[in-house]
């Protein structure tokens, strides 16, 4: 069954992803931490699909599709930013600072 342990593991991985987004400065690594959070949510979907039926597993497929689209567009944005600022360091992106 393993429902409780799976949800706990999902919580730990999601928290690690949030921590990475908040403390890292490299835009690409921040992006990878978002993928880690999506993976954690996928794990809880699969765990709950065990008792609720297969809708959860179908949702995981949708999440993966959205993650692929998000990775493609997001990395293109990072490429454009790098071309503009010659850096992917989030601290140097201060265009909106007064």
């Amino acid at each position: 069954m393993l429902l409780g342990p799976s949800l706990a593991l999902s919580a730990v991985l999601f928290t690690l992803g949030v921590l990475g987004v908040l403390v890292r400065r490299n835009a690409i690594v921040v992006f990878m931490c978002v993928e880690l959070m999506l993976n954690a949510v996928n794990l809880s979907f699969v765990a709950l699909a065990q008792v609720h039926g297969l809708g959860g597993q179908v949702m995981v497929i949708f999440v993966m599709t959205v993650a692929a689209a998000e990775a493609a567009v997001g990395l293109a944005i990072i490429l454009a930013i790098f071309r503009h600022a010659q850096s992917v360091d989030l601290r140097q992106l201060t265009l909106l600072k007064g």
Binding site: L3, G4, L7, A8, S10, T15, L19, L22, V23, S44
Partner: peptide
């Protein structure tokens, strides 16, 4: 690579609060 202490500490604190809340899920059998 790491954010300096005001932002970094805030990030660690926020993540710890979120993690403590999410860990309640572990009790769900």
């Amino acid at each position: 690579e790491w954010r300096r202490w005001p932002v970094g500490l805030l990030g660690v604190g926020l993540a710890a609060v979120l993690g403590a809340q999410l860990m309640m899920l572990g009790g769900y059998g």
